[in-house]
């Protein structure tokens, strides 16, 4: 369903006001999302780039919410699966 301009504007304003209150710019969220995505990408098969939301609570503390979708957990190679070391005689 296509959102109406008023709804799009409301969503945009909501994000803008939260960003203003949190005191972080759009570039900050993008950089954080990229870094978090790289770390999570080592553990999960990410479907898309994680969404990072930074808000500021009433007490002034930052609340960081990361939402990421993954299709699978990456399989780690355990030490048992590794070829046994060749011990020189």
């Amino acid at each position: 369903m296509v959102l109406k301009p008023a709804k799009l504007m409301e969503e945009r304003m909501k994000e803008m006001l939260i960003r203003d209150k949190a005191g972080v710019g759009e570039g900050f969220s993008a950089a954080l999302s990229g870094d978090v995505g790289r770390v999570l990408g080592d553990y999960f098969e990410l479907v898309s780039r994680p969404a990072v939301k930074v808000a500021r609570g009433e007490d002034g503390a930052y609340e960081v919410t990361v939402t990421a979708r993954a299709s699978a957990v990456k399989r780690f190679r355990t030490t048992e699966e590794l070829p046994s070391p060749v011990i020189p005689s």
């Binding site: 109406k4 301009p5 008023a6 504007m9 409301e10 304003m13 909501k14």
Partner: peptide, 17 residues
């Protein structure tokens, strides 16, 4: 415009603020 959804309604602005 608010009736057509092209402009934000006053109560939406009030809620936002």
């Amino acid at each position: 415009m608010t009736a057509r959804g092209e402009m934000m309604r006053a109560d939406d602005i009030a809620r936002l603020l």
